[in-house]
C-alpha cells in the first residue's frame, strides 16, 4: 500500500511537471510566432489550442492511472 501511494504520487507529479514544461514551450513558441507574424495570429491560435489539448491529455490520463495505483486497484510490481 505504501509503495502504491508513492508510485501514484510520483506518477501524477511527474505528469504535471511534464505538462507544465510542454505548455511553457508551446506558448513561448506561440508568442514568438505572433510577434514575428501578427497577421497569422488567428491561425496560430487554433493550432496552439489544439496542441494545448494534446499536451494536457498526458496529466489527465496520468491522473486516472495514478488514482487507480494510489487506491490499490492496480498493484505496483
Amino acid at each position: 500500500m505504501e509503495l502504491g501511494v508513492l508510485a501514484g504520487g510520483i506518477m501524477i507529479g511527474l505528469a504535471a511537471l511534464a505538462a507544465g514544461i510542454g505548455n511553457g514551450l508551446l506558448f513561448s513558441r506561440y508568442l514568438e510566432g505572433i510577434t514575428r507574424q501578427p497577421e497569422a495570429q488567428s491561425k496560430l491560435f487554433s493550432q496552439a489550442m489544439i496542441t494545448l489539448g494534446l499536451v494536457e491529455a498526458l496529466p489527465i490520463i496520468s491522473i486516472a492511472f495514478g488514482i487507480l495505483v494510489l487506491f490499490g486497484i492496480v498493484p505496483p510490481k
Binding site: 490520463i61 486516472a64 486497484i73
Partner: peptide, 28 residues
C-alpha cells in the same frame, strides 16, 4: 476535464463488474 476523468475512475471503482479498469485506461 480532470474531474470528468476522476468520475470515470470512480465508476470503475464502484462497479468493477460492469467496467474493466484496464480497458477504461485504454479508451482514455
Amino acid at each position: 476535464r480532470i474531474l470528468l476523468v476522476v468520475f470515470g475512475v470512480g465508476l470503475t471503482f464502484r462497479y468493477p463488474e460492469w467496467f474493466d479498469y484496464r480497458s477504461f485506461l485504454l479508451g482514455l
